[in-house]
Structure formats: structure tokens, C-alpha cells
């Protein structure tokens, strides 16, 4: 199940590329939204496009959905050229954006039926497909209600259903879980995994490392319109340093003693902070986690809580670019000075 343990090169070797992007450039006035982006998505796999706000992720998705035209470069989706064969390409794709693109005044059913008709399904089939997808996305009870009465999660599910009507071979999910609560996010993830298991190719943009870990086979990291890293999830994770284990002892006074014990048993990389009362250990694999907990337990330290933390996107950027991350946050000192 843990797809990340499989090296990226092990998958999809026999498949062809469902998406091929070469040297795509897009300017908005002076700003270069995309500055020569290359990427490929193998058929039947999920490519996670990771990047901060304003990195160019959405611009890329809009180009690949024929919503905007690139200034230079080529892009093929399902073998169709975004510039010369937009209508054929549109039959191949489904798009779910960050903001649900459904008609708020129409019911869930009417939304799906409309799209079915626009995809040239006969009325009967459009009806059947709408009903089927409402069922699948657990929206049957709300089928007749206007979409504006839906919760955020229901809307996102309706949006996903809408992009599935035409059985697209390639799905673009543009930050599909931004702004969703954890439970709804999990529902969306489950749905995406199901689509992939049924053979869809997915291009997923996200700001969340965790989302990329859950869903993606391979990653492309974009910053300021440029690809700054790409490869398998495991590969990039190794670059960034994997997870951090955080242990909260019952008695914070024992922190130095705990770190020393770990060091003695050869488990390096443990640090602690009296301020937070946490012991942190950099993990490179799951065995290490078991070992750390085992050592601490056998020495009789009381543990109040443990947690593992993935590197944040900021940390990924920090590592890859070797400079400070993409946050626009005001440095803490300045904030305090203002206050």
C-alpha cells in the first residue's frame, strides 16, 4: 500500500506519457508566470506539482486545459496538441479547480446533467450518468438541492463528479483540498485514489507535502515559474531529510537524559528543547522510529505523547534551493518591533 517505498523508476515503465510539456513560457506583462517548464506524466500515474502560491501551478493547469495559450513551448495531452487540437483535447481531460466551478443556483443533479449534455451524451445517458455519479460521490440525498446550500466538502465532491462525467483520461486537480477540513480532505483523497485505480492519469497541484506523499507517484517542484526539482517522492523526501519524530516526555526534566541514552545506543540526530518540552529525532526509516521508542521505553522514561512530522513545503524549498523559503511572512523580530 505504501507506494512511496517503491522507487519511482519501478512504475509505469511500459506506459507512454499522457502529458508532455516542453519549454512552456507564459508572460503576464513583465512577470514570467512560467519560464520554460518541462514535465511529463506517465499514463496511469499521479504527478504532484508542488509549489508555493504564485509559483505558476495554476497557470500551468490553465494552459493544459486550453483556457490560456502559452507564449512559447509545446504541450501534448493524450496525444493532442493544446494549441492545434483544443477541441479534441477537451474531450480527454477533466478539471477540478481550487474553487468549485459548479452553478450555485442549479441543483447537483442539474449541474451534472448539463455537463453530460454539453459532452454530447444523449438525454437518457446524461441522466443516468448524473445519477450514477451523485450516488458514487454520496450526494444522492442532496441531488435536488441547489449547490449553494452544499457544504464546502460537498461542493468539492460535486466538482470532482462534474469533471468525471466524460470519463476523462487525464484529470487535473488544481489544489483540490485547499481550504478543506481534514475529514473532507480525506474523502477527496480517497476519491482521487479510486480514480487512479480505475486507470486515470492525474496531474495534481498542491502546496501540501503531505498531500503529495499520499497521492503522487512522482513530483515536480515549481518555484517562480521554473522547475527546481523533479523525481520520485521517495527520492525528494530523502533529499529533504524525511520525517521528524517528536516525543513529549511525562517529565520534561528528563529530556537531556533521554537524548543521551539515544546517543549511547547509536541513535544519532536527537535534539531537545526545554522551551517546547519536546525531544526531536530525524528519521530516515520506520525501523528507526521503533528503535527510538523501544530504547526510551526500556529505560523507563515516561512518554506522554509522540508525533511524526513531515518536512513542510518551506523546508523542502529551503533544502532544494538552499535559500529561505517562499514565505512572505514578516520576520518575527520586526513583528515584535511593530507591536
Amino acid at each position: 500500500m505504501n507506494r512511496n517505498d517503491i522507487a519511482p523508476n519501478d512504475r509505469g515503465l511500459s506506459g507512454t506519457n499522457a502529458v508532455e510539456v516542453r519549454g512552456i513560457v507564459k508572460h503576464y506583462g513583465e512577470t514570467k508566470a512560467l519560464d520554460g517548464v518541462d514535465l511529463t506524466v506517465r499514463q496511469g500515474t499521479v504527478l504532484g506539482v508542488l509549489g508555493p502560491n504564485g509559483a505558476g501551478k495554476t497557470t500551468l493547469v490553465r494552459i493544459l486545459s486550453t483556457l490560456i495559450k502559452p507564449d512559447a513551448g509545446t504541450a501534448f495531452v493524450g496525444g493532442y496538441d493544446v494549441l492545434r487540437q483544443p477541441k479534441q483535447l477537451r474531450r480527454t481531460i477533466g478539471l477540478t479547480g481550487q474553487y468549485a466551478s459548479v452553478d450555485e443556483l442549479l441543483s447537483g443533479y442539474e449541474n451534472l446533467y448539463l455537463i453530460g449534455r454539453l459532452l454530447d451524451l444523449p438525454a437518457k445517458q446524461a441522466k443516468a450518468r448524473a445519477t450514477e455519479l451523485l450516488e458514487r460521490f454520496s450526494l444522492t440525498d442532496a441531488a435536488k438541492r441547489p449547490a449553494k446550500t452544499y457544504s464546502g466538502g460537498m461542493r468539492r465532491r460535486l466538482d470532482l463528479a462534474a469533471s468525471m462525467i466524460g470519463n476523462p483520461k487525464v484529470l487535473y486537480l488544481d489544489e483540490p483540498t485547499t481550504g478543506l477540513d481534514p475529514r473532507t480532505r480525506n474523502e477527496v483523497w480517497d476519491e482521487v485514489q479510486r480514480m487512479v485505480s480505475e486507470g486515470a492519469t492525474v496531474l495534481l497541484t498542491t502546496q501540501y507535502m503531505e498531500e503529495a506523499e499520499q497521492l503522487a507517484d512522482a513530483l515536480t517542484v515549481i518555484d517562480k515559474g521554473k522547475v527546481i526539482a523533479s523525481g520520485g517522492v521517495a527520492e525528494l523526501k530523502a533529499q529533504v531529510g524525511g520525517r521528524t519524530l517528536q516525543v513529549r516526555p511525562v517529565h520534561p526534566a528528563e529530556l537531556p537524559e533521554m537524548a543521551r541514552c539515544l546517543h549511547e545506543t547509536g541513535l544519532t540526530g536527537a535534539t531537545f528543547s526545554a522551551d517546547t518540552g519536546l525531544l526531536s529525532v530525524q528519521l530516515t526509516d520506520d525501523e528507526q522510529l521503533t528503535a527510538v521508542i523501544g530504547v526510551l521505553g526500556s529505560r523507563g522514561f515516561g512518554i506522554a505523547g509522540i508525533d511524526t512530522k513531515l518536512p513542510s513545503l518551506d523546508e523542502v524549498f529551503l533544502t532544494i534551493t538552499g535559500k529561505s523559503g517562499p514565505t512572505d511572512a514578516v520576520p518575527t523580530l520586526e513583528k515584535e518591533a511593530v507591536a
Binding site: G15, A18, G44, Q85, K169
Partner: peptide, 10 residues
């Protein structure tokens, strides 16, 4: 599950 979906070659 990664069996390639068939894409009409254009």
C-alpha cells in the same frame, strides 16, 4: 493498477 489506459493516438 497502473495498466495504461488506452489513448487514441492523434
Amino acid at each position: 493498477t497502473l495498466s495504461p489506459a488506452t489513448v487514441k493516438p492523434a
